[in-house]
Design a protein around this nucleic acid. Structure first.
Length: 307
DNA sequence: ACAGATACCGCGTCCTTATG
DNA sequence: CATAAGGACGCGGTATCTGT
């Protein structure tokens, strides 16, 4: 440690970000040779080339990749602990928070989140972004997305932090005057009824599909639709049933008297709904505030909906 | 032609030593 | 023990070279 010049650490991190000496220099606000010599000293200290020239730019070596997380962490700690005193004030903030939500999330999260924003952050705005699952990662890293809420089983790795909000279970919806409304549905009935099946972009419906497939249970998908929104209108006018995450079902039932909930006759799988963020922003006051608000609003108490 | 590495020089920093 | 003065070291800049 004595021999390692700590001033070199930002260069290491900037190189990983830019993968290019000149651009790293630009980002750091220094000259290109300075990055080059800094890299040289790092190379000597660690006895490893750290970054090598390739057709895709300066590629980090395994050694560099092993070093960088710690370096990044150190910088963030210093920034947070010593330099960044600025606090986030929800009452005056005019920030627009970007949140990645599945369509399930839009229905479940946005109304309550907006209510809370109106009270505590009246000048802040919300933007719900719909991005393909593979791009959530990139968005969170770049800061284009502040938070991802929902079922994102692919969002792992040690660059991302997550917090479980509540566990989703599946329930069945049907019209209130359906012959089976208010009864205890049997497996036979469940399988013989026509189903309205949502195949949304998100991953949550896959959990159900995989389960049914594994159990070799075939239901009759009379309707396939990519949207949850149309379900209440469809169910009201047909004998179809739909199996959906419970928070959605509860939301529909509270708005549409013509829809009612029936418990499914099978122990359907459950899945955790989480909020995900990039470790880069773990200590950012704004992000911390948003996450605390989300976990305050959405937690296991949601299992008790509706009253 | 472009990007990264090297040469060289000025200057600032920090260490050592001296002194109040 | 604190501060001042002197000096070595090395950082970081510009210019330039080298390799792809």
């Amino acid at each position: 440690m004595q021999d390692l010049d700590l001033n070199l650490i930002p260069y290491l991190v900037a190189m990983e970000d830019a993968r290019n000496v000149s651009r790293a220099a630009e980002r750091l606000g220094v000259s290109q040779p300075r990055v080059s010599t800094a890299l040289g000293r790092l190379r000597e200290y660690f006895g490893d080339p750290l970054f090598v020239r390739t057709s895709r730019g300066m590629e980090p070596t395994p050694r560099a990749l092993a070093l960088i997380p710690a370096a990044r962490d150190a910088l963030i700690r210093i920034e947070k602990g010593m330099l960044a005193a600025q606090e986030f004030d929800p009452a005056t903030s005019t920030h627009t928070f970007s949140i990645a939500l599945s369509d399930v999330g839009e229905i479940v999260f946005l109304p309550r989140l907006l209510q809370l924003f109106a009270e505590r952050a009246p000048h802040a705005n919300l933007r719900s972004v719909s991005v393909p699952p593979g791009q959530v990662e990139r968005g969170l890293e770049s800061g284009d997305i502040d938070l991802a809420i929902g079922y994102f089983p692919d969002l792992g790795g040690n660059n991302f932090f997550q917090q479980r909000l509540f566990t989703h279970r599946f329930i069945c919806l049907m019209r209130s005057n359906h012959p089976l409304a208010g009864t205890t549905m049997t497996v036979e009935q469940f399988l013989s009824l026509g189903h309205a099946v949502v195949r949304a972009e998100g991953r949550s419906q896959e959990v159900l599909e995989h389960y049914l497939e594994k159990k070799r249970l075939r239901r009759r998908a009379v309707l396939e639709t990519p949207h949850f929104m149309s379900l209440p209108f469809i169910l009201t006018r047909t004998d179809l049933i739909a199996t959906v995450p419970h928070a959605i079902g509860f939301a529909y039932v509270s708005e549409h008297a013509s829809i009612t909930i029936v418990e499914p006759p099978l122990p359907l799988p459950r899945f955790d709904l989480k909020q995900h963020w990039h470790r880069k922003y773990h200590n950012a006051p704004r992000g911390e505030w948003l996450r605390s608000v989300v976990s305050e609003l959405f937690n296991d108490a949601l299992d008790e909906w509706p009253k």
